[in-house]
Nucleic acid binder design. Sequence first.
RNA 1: GCCUCGAUGGCGGAAUUGGUAGACGCGCUGGAUUCAAAAUCCAGUUCUUUCGGGAGUGCGGGUUCGAUUCCCGCUCGAGGUACCA
Length: 984
Amino acid sequence: MEYNFREIEKNWQKYWAENQTFKADNNSDKPKFYVLDMFPYPSGAGLHVGHPLGYIASDIYSRYKRHKGFNVMHPQGYDSFGLPAEQYAIQTGQHPAITTEANIKTYRKQLDQIGFSFDWSREVRTSDPSYYKWTQWIFTQLFNSWYNKETDKAEDVSTLISIFSSQGNSKVKAACDEDIEVFTADDWKNYSEEQQQSILLKYRLTFLSETEVNWCPELGTVLANDEIVNGVSERGGHPVVRKKMMQWSMRITAYAQRLLDGLAKIDWPQPLKDSQTYWIGRSEGAMVSFDIDGFDAKIDVFTTRPDTIFGVSFMTLAPEHELVSKITTAAQKTAIDTYVKATAKRSELERMADVKTISGVFTGAYAKHPFTGEKIQIWIGDYVLAGYGTGAVMAVPCGDERDYAFANYFGLEIPNIFEGVDISEEACSTKEGVKIANSDFLNGLTYKKAMKRIIFEIEQRGFGYGKINYRLRDAVFSRQRYWGEPFPVYYKNGLPQMIDAKHLPIILPEVEKYLPTEDGKPPLGNATTWAWDTKTNKVVSNELINNETIFPLELNTMPGWAGSSSYFNRYMDSQNTDEFVSKEAVEYWQDVDLYIGGSEHATGHLLYSRFWQKFLFDKGVLPVDEYAKKLINQGMITGTSAFVYRWEFGEGNGNDLARKTIFVSKNLMENIIKERKAMGANKKTEVIKENVNLLSACEIANAPKNEWTGFTPIHADVSFVNAADELDIEAFKNWRPEYKDAEFILEDGKYIVGREVEKMSKSKYNVVNPDQICEEYGADSLRLFEMFLGPLEQSKPWKTSGISGVYSFLKKLWKLYIVNGEFSVSDSEPTKEELKTLHKTIKKVEEDIANFSFNTSVSTFMIAVNELTALKCNKRAILEPLAIIIEPYAPHIAEELWSKLGYKNSVSTVDFPIFEAKHLIESSKEYPISFNGKMRFKLEFPMDMSKEEIEKAVLAHEKTQAQLQGRTPKKVIVVPGKIVNIVG
RNA sequence: GCCUCGAUGGCGGAAUUGGUAGACGCGCUGGAUUCAAAAUCCAGUUCUUUCGGGAGUGCGGGUUCGAUUCCCGCUCGAGGUACCA
């Protein structure tokens, strides 16, 4: 009976599936425990070794919790709407649904072979109509809600309507658009239906508005801020420009403060909380209005330092500010226009690249200081952003670096309002401990007191008020894509109308092609059956549109984060066709106890989902307003890329094409570079040829240009490279047609590749998938190995070289139970030492699981098995509990051993062995004896020996005397049970 | 620039409240077994050494009887963020 993992793993995976071992009930006497993984996007590349890392960790935790008596839910599903399937569809014409289905099949097969304890009966797929029905439903709920700042929660729009019709909107405190005019109850009643609707739209939690968006022309869609990396699209790296478009938005800003406050009560990693805090960007300050000299207009500014208002010496507007054209004087008009145009042309990327350059133009207009009445120059400058605050700043050069630099550059005045601070070199932006001067009633006050006083004065005199500002923007919710959730929206007289919840889902229509239409409409513009019949409540042909009973449907689709923003709640009751989640289910499961996933979702998914949770909590759908008590970010597994080095010749003219492609082995390449350096950079290839004596193998001597320019590293697929970094040349040649006839210059008959650690990615050809390891070593080995790589939360390079260690550990474990091919376990009493090993292991493993330190538990198991092997232990009293504690990590072998021990049930729900401290009590301790903190030797003493006796015994020892070499110790420190330290 | 995290043998990493630095595994070296190989087992493996010992956790200081661990100041690396008034 060998350890035949192939058979064992296949059998148990079948057993679990057939017996639905891991199906969780929605009611149980046991306490609940909900373990969640971030569900994967099923990409065509399949699962790579980075995916299972988090899944294995969560699976270990789930299995452990089952042993501890919990009713554990560990669901899995697919975030199956998304760009890659759509782009594939554009290229090939294949429907994204087909691609997605095929990819899901692959994923499922790959997941199944790793032996996860997922409850597949709860599976969700975001692209499945039965699922996105509820995404659409949440959208309609948001549309029908407004945010009441008075009660600090979302309420039904009907409550807003009744306030409007009884008292108008002047007393309503809502999170809403800023351009709302005040109206009375009578006004409201006299408004037309359309007028009322367009007013309500400004209050709804999801609303349509003309917003400046990040438009990616290449992808033909709008992108969210978190989908842009370094000024280009995250997917594909295409340029992004600013553009005004009519878009659906989500009023996430209504929840800014609650999203901030909620962080305090969840156990999430601090860096993640920090980035959300920064993203929300709360700052306290004041809104101040400045009159403009000679105009009936005001400039509103937001400032966090109203206490420095007496230091204002000019104002700066964003070039896009609406007042710019109005107030600019004739003399300055040309300069201003040129500047505004130049700024508009610069891309975000360019603006970012040179933040140091100072630029701006004087408008010729002046504002009036609200306190002193002094005239203040109004400038424009691109360091002021239109999108933040009011797009205008009051410049206090003595207190703000950017204002200081601006004033310095243009020779503007820099009045000092800080007592005893030198501002001749730089601005003073420290708040604490600096007293205000030259500031009328603020003189002598420190920051906090001055803030209070100035806000009081500003409010008293009526030119402003204290305000809290957030960096967080409302989230754009429209995408010009095909493969996403359609909106349950049709348009009547240009105003959006919700389709009633009972008619959902609105199913994604079929289209001829997946590109935007020729007149620039989104892909759904290609659909011919995409109109809403309000009589039959059905989607009908576009030809029937009469704008009376049949209307056009929305052409945008929802963004990627829509489907993932509440999927964890849907898992609780995923098969429910009547409700998003039933009361019973959600009351039982409440929230996620442990959520594991990558940190890249910090300001995307993890913020949006908290927003939706709070909203659905307000609506009474969910019982808690934070959905995940604890979150762990698993670290990224980096890949080890392989490089081949192409020798480059000539200056890229046509002749080069005729020449052969030559790859030089790594060390040779390095030698050649070294030689070339030694000879001077401009030597002819001929010279190199003689010296390196390589080129005779190639035909390049015949090439028209012999000058060579260097080496280009090219990614080679890691599957062509073995552990010794040798390239499989034939495989590489067959990889791409252009390499078919390539020449390889070898060293010692081999081609050695270069190695570099990079993010695991398809484009870097360094992706390793788990299938091969499962095939060669088994799922239990893969599970142990991924955990053994290092701390879960740390990023670490993938190297398979260590896998033999965990594999031979499993074989050793097997041999404890099966000796010489025979199952052989004795019922005799275990020895003290055997019990000690067992209980030491139980204790350590439980501590490790609590700390998510799975790598150290694997070592602990190895130590235990090594010790038990040395003790030749085959006692049932030891081996039974051992099988249980190892089950979360290596479930297949554990099940097999458990059944060999004579049990018919699955080991997965057996109680975890109880740790008993009595087995670890020692009667003596081997004390390290150190001198000045350095351990020199050890002495064994009984545990109950007193401090004094130990000191005496140590000092009397010959080794101590030898160490001291006649000196008298100054001090002796004895820590009973720990250490002895002699100073001298 | 700012925020966050990190730096320990040839490699991945361990050391949970300050108390024996390098657990466990890989790799490497030697040996056993074998006709041979695989597999398995045993011994060794931080550096240095005159074999007594000495040094050592990115660098420089500090606190302490004692620091990988705490404090101060740097260097380097990874990730995030982008003029936020």
